[in-house]
Amino acid sequence: MRLKQTLREQGLETRRVDYEDRTEYVSDFGSRDGVSVDVVGDTAIVVAGEEQHDVELPADARVFLNNDVLTIEVNK
């Protein structure tokens, strides 16, 4: 399954940004309390308040959370 489709199915609105060597999927959680992300195997577990989203990741994905903005970076 494609990452964008997986994020949409999990209810996460994302913006896709393409660069020469990578693609980033960015989701801004705004000012929700308690946003966190953990990566277990090939799954990113995103918790935002009362919500939990399990996102299956491609093998080469890197996941970042900064100021309640989730970024999933994938090499092209």
Rank of each mutant, 00 (worst) to 15 (best):
H53L: 05
D38H: 09
V37N: 08
D21F: 07
G11R: 09
L57D: 05
G41M: 11
D18I: 10
D18E: 11
P58M: 10
D21E: 12
E51Y: 02
A44H: 08
D28M: 04
Y25S: 02
V55E: 05
D21C: 00
R62D: 12
V40C: 01
V17D: 04
Y19W: 13
R62F: 05
D54F: 15
V55W: 07
Y25C: 10
F29A: 12
E56Y: 11
D38T: 12
E20P: 07
R22P: 00
V46C: 02
T14P: 06
A59I: 07
D54C: 07
V46E: 01
P58R: 14
Y19I: 00
Q10K: 08
I45L: 05
G41D: 14
S27P: 06
A61G: 03
L12H: 09
E24R: 07
V37M: 07
V37A: 12
R16C: 09
E13N: 08
R15H: 13
S36M: 03
T43M: 08
G11I: 10
A48F: 03
V37F: 03
V47C: 08
E56S: 02
Y19H: 05
R8N: 07
H53P: 08
S31T: 09
R16W: 04
G34A: 10
V46H: 00
E9M: 13
D18A: 14
E13W: 00
Y25D: 04
V35H: 05
V37H: 07
H53Y: 15
G11D: 10
Q52N: 03
V40I: 10
E50L: 14
E56F: 00
I45S: 00
G30R: 05
